[in-house]
Design a protein around this nucleic acid. Structure first.
Length: 461
RNA sequence: UCCCCGGUAGCUCAAUUGGCAGAGCGGGUGGCUGUUAACCACUAGGUUGGCGGUUCGAGUCCGUCCCGGGGAGCCA
């Protein structure tokens, strides 16, 4: 047996005119004398399907149970609507109540709720217009990422989530263990010995180090998966678990890297605005009225490409009181990045060739001896959405750098062998998927672009 | 972790100098012949985040803890 139903999306498109069956959740009921209007949503699209229930319809006695939040099955005829506001509607022939939602206690009302309140009911908020739209957009962009890379000759590789390397070079890590409490209390060396892998294990903070050997075999690869950072960052832009897109290209340099980042970002913004126009429209109308203009600018103009050295000059000359100092060798602070993208250029800026002292060991050293081939894409309102670099492909230079930073050379033996045998120039970056979603939706808090966010001190649901 | 702001009805918020705790929405009941987050009338709903203090009297002042939001650091 199977449930045959027409989705609201298909019904609204007029597919299968005639007798259909739809199932969904009641968003609102409006009663008139002798009949009622039910608005049904089944998550297939933003718009609700209007159902007309005449008095005397079989199951019509259930109407009083069919308030906001209840689930219902409607059999009826899909007809052109005589009213304004919708092309099609369903004239019910039979109603069935699937699940009640007590109006006294159902938390969602027909009106708008605050994001803060909806976060406390993350299991129900996907039934709201805004979070439904966000989740459909999240899905569409995930698929667009795979489509983009497929169309451009990249292989999708699955880098591990559990790693034995505690120095992937991007922040604090979560430990993964199968130890009992008693075993965990042993001294470090004995404890590690006892553990599942016979050594310490962690959740990955980046797929990059394992993606590189794959790029150095397949040419162009990307990973797209969850990453984990045990940092006590308590901000609207950080989560402990988030998704990252990480392309890695052999036979590529920093400029190729920038080209890819810009093209990928523009392609995804276009997907959101064009292919997801209905859901995007909700954000452009209610969440951020400047969104359409902002993203149109984003698409229309090339990103600014600015060497770090010039960024410092611009900031030094800015008529602006920064809380943090600006100067050669100092990292750019949030306020500086925002000034560049939001005030000075008013569009995305790629800052590149950063001082080597403030960047990771694997980034390619420039000939000046002072900078590395790193790049950050800064966008107005969000800050950094992409961070990447050309990778150091010269064995001697890479080894010297690892020694200089006092990192454990032996732990990188396999990474170094990719340089020892048939090394080639290569480059890649990480794109924060949630930050991309913040960019295309205008949603200001990362907790609201994930279904169930994991952040510092928050693990409900 | 640091700085700032906040916590009052299910939700969003008012409450004068410390002086009777209110509104809109949502809910309930009734009405309305096609509504569009409908409309009209009536109605129920409160340990003012917790604990302690000052005071004749505390939503309001003080202390402390909890929770939420914004910003910073770090990063994607």
């Amino acid at each position: 047996m199977s449930i045959r139903r027409t989705t609201v999306k298909a019904a609204l498109a007029g597919e299968g005119a005639g007798d259909i069956r739809v199932m969904g959740w009641v968003r609102t009921r409006r009663d008139a004398k002798g009949f009622s209007f039910l608005e049904i949503n089944d998550g297939s699209c933003l718009t609700n399907l209007q159902v007309i229930v005449e008095e005397g319809t079989p199951g019509g006695e259930l109407l009083k149970e069919l308030g906001t939040g209840a689930s219902v099955a409607v059999a009826g005829e899909l007809v052109a609507s005589p009213g304004k506001g919708q092309r099609f509607e369903v004239r019910a022939k039979e109603l069935a109540l699937l699940g009640q939602a007590d109006p006294e206690t159902y938390p969602l009302q027909k009106k708008r709720h605050s994001d803060e309140f909806l976060r406390t009911i993350a299991h129900l908020r996907p039934r709201t217009n805004k979070y439904g739209a966000m989740l459909r957009l999240r899905s569409a962009l995930s698929q667009a990422i795979h489509a983009y890379f497929a169309a451009n000759g990249f292989a999708w590789v699955h880098t591990p989530i559990i790693t034995g390397s505690d120095c992937e070079g991007a922040g604090e890590m979560f430990r993964v263990t199968a130890l009992t409490d008693a075993e965990a209390a042993l001294p470090a060396a004995a404890r590690a010995e006892k553990d599942f892998f016979g050594k310490d294990a962690f959740l990955t903070v980046s797929g990059q180090l394992t993606a590189e050997p794959l790029a150095l075999a397949l040419g162009k690869v990307y990973t797209f998966g969850p990453t984990f950072r045990a940092e006590h960052s308590d901000t609207s832009r950080h989560a402990a678990e988030f998704w990252m897109v990480e392309p890695e290209m052999a036979f590529a340099d920093l400029e190729d890297n920038m080209d890819l980042a810009e093209d990928l970002l523009k392609s995804l913004v276009r997907t959101a605005m064009v292919d997801c126009a209905e859901d995007f429209g909700l954000f452009a109308k209610y969440v951020d009225p400047t969104l359409t203009e902002t993203l149109s600018t984003f698409l229309a103009e090339p990103f600014v490409r600015l060497p770090y050295r010039e960024a410092v000059s611009i900031l030094a000359a800015a008529k602006k009181d920064f809380a943090y100092p600006v100067g050669p060798g100092l990292d750019l602070q949030s306020e500086h990045e925002r000034y560049l993208a939001e005030e000075h250029f008013r569009r995305p800026v790629i800052v590149y060739d950063y001082p080597r002292a403030i960047k990771a060991f694997y980034m390619r050293q420039n000939d000046d001896g002072e900078t590395v081939g790193a790049m950050d894409v800064l966008v107005p309102g969000i800050g950094e959405v992409v961070g990447g670099s050309a990778r150091e492909e010269r064995l001697d230079v890479l080894e010297a750098r690892i020694r200089e930073l006092r990192l454990p050379l032996e732990a990188y033996w396999w990474y170094l062998e990719t340089r020892r045998f048939g090394t080639v120039p290569h480059a890649g970056f990480g794109l924060g998927f949630e930050r991309l979603l913040m960019l295309v939706t205008g949603i200001g808090n990362i907790r609201d672009v994930m279904p169930f966010a994991r952040t510092w001190r928050h693990l409900e649901f």
